[in-house]
Simulated assay, not measured.
Amino acid sequence: MSEVADRVRNSSVSVIKEMMYLGAQEATRGKDIVSLGVGLPFYPAPKHVHTHVINKLQTKSDIDKYTLLTGLPELRNIVADISTNQLGFKVSSDEILITPGSMAALLYSMLALVNPGEEVILPSPYFSSYAEQITIAEGIVVPVAMIEDPRVGFRLDVAKIQKAINNKTKAIVLNNPQNPTGAVYLKEDLLELSKILKNTAVYVITDEVYDYLLYDNCEYFNIGEIKEIWPRVIRCCSLSKKYGMMGWRIGYLHTNRDLLMNILKVHDASIVCAPHISQEAAIAALTGPQDCVKDHVKWLSDNRDAICRRLDKLPELFTYVKPRGTYYVFPKFNFPIKSIEMAKRLLYEAKVVTVPGIGFGPEGENHLRLSFGSSTQVIHKAFDRISDWYAKQK
């Protein structure tokens, strides 16, 4: 279509959404489809969030109205205090923008920072939507292969990142813990990277949606704690996975005040403000009892162990490193086809939705992303089918 702008024509719907769509199509045809594809945790939002929201719907006279562009002052103060505790230095509410999920925060960052032809580095494999957002901003995706370490899984290749930086490099996106690999970046690698970045004009955009989801007492380090790389840091954060609030579409962005005022132009021109009711839900989630988060981590840890046991029973088909964070595992498959064909064969022949690794960058080929965010029953049902399917291929 010649009337469609190049920035849209050159982008695509993520392979994750494509596989969801194909699976849904099969389900409408009466097929019993099981999904390990979508990153959707099975638990609902905490009851105290629902109770708070119902109360506000009944008692808050302006609940149906806009909030300030930047968000409810109470919520921004709460987020600033949380960020202060996380990073170890004072964060002001003037540095916080409440957004409709971290996806909006990430897109705002690309549109506010990236000029046509400028480059954004993505450690690869990477979450597919980053590439789409960079393309929409008319930037250039620069994938930099990570190291596959058999001890800790994927880790940053700092030397390769340094070589990739040039006068066109605008930013690097760091998703830690990482989707799709389940990796948690090593503190030593992040410290080494920060020494390089502090002497450049490169911005660091962090996606921290899984920062709570760590296993086996794994050490988590936020590169935003390194004061020397500020003010060229944009933190994109979400309540979706931590509190089971995906449908509420609520998150926040943290950066220096001057840059935030420019990002606000994109926010104002597109969204105006995050939904008022969702901001109230966020207040309840962040200030209410946090036992639910511990429960979520425990449930997902059990799921991780379950899916790893099932992978261990198929050593001829899959090799993998046990994920240290998130609710994804990224096994390499030993089968003589590409990952898109592998995912489609599992869908149409085994009735199991997975996500082909090529959708996460060139280093993702010959892998599948499997989500263990669903129930253990779903995991076992899916692997029963995969095992039966593989037995027929021999």
Rank of each mutant, 00 (worst) to 15 (best):
I54S: 15
A112K: 08
F372Y: 12
A159K: 09
L174Y: 00
N166K: 13
L368A: 07
K344Y: 15
K338T: 12
V4C: 10
A159N: 05
S270I: 14
K322C: 11
Y203I: 04
I54C: 08
Q393I: 08
I54T: 12
V38G: 11
A183F: 04
K394N: 08
Y320R: 10
T67I: 09
L190V: 04
I134P: 00
V141I: 06
S371H: 10
Y210I: 13
I134S: 00
N166C: 14
L156N: 01
T326C: 08
V204P: 00
V272E: 09
S12L: 04
I136S: 03
N179L: 10
T287F: 03
V321F: 15
I229K: 07
R29E: 14
P356Q: 07
K65F: 15
P323H: 06
N77Q: 13
S2Y: 14
A269L: 14
V266K: 02
E219D: 12
N303V: 14
I96P: 02
D291V: 11
I96L: 10
N10L: 12
I307K: 05
F318N: 02
Y212H: 09
F154G: 02
I250N: 01
Y243E: 03
Y43V: 01
D295P: 03
L36H: 05
Y210W: 12
V34M: 02
T135W: 00
A343I: 00
P275D: 13
Y215N: 03
A382D: 00
R310T: 09
E208T: 12
D305I: 10
I226S: 00
Q377D: 13
A183K: 00
L190A: 01
K392H: 15
L72S: 03
L72C: 09
K17T: 08
M20E: 15
H254I: 14
V49G: 05
D211E: 04
I78Y: 00
E74T: 12
S2I: 12
L122M: 13
K168S: 06
H50F: 13
E280A: 05
G247T: 06
N366F: 07
V355N: 03
S92L: 04
R309S: 08
I33F: 13
S35K: 05
F318A: 03
N85F: 09
D6G: 13
L111C: 14
M146Q: 14
K65E: 06
I196R: 04
V13I: 13
E316T: 09
P362S: 07
Y185S: 03
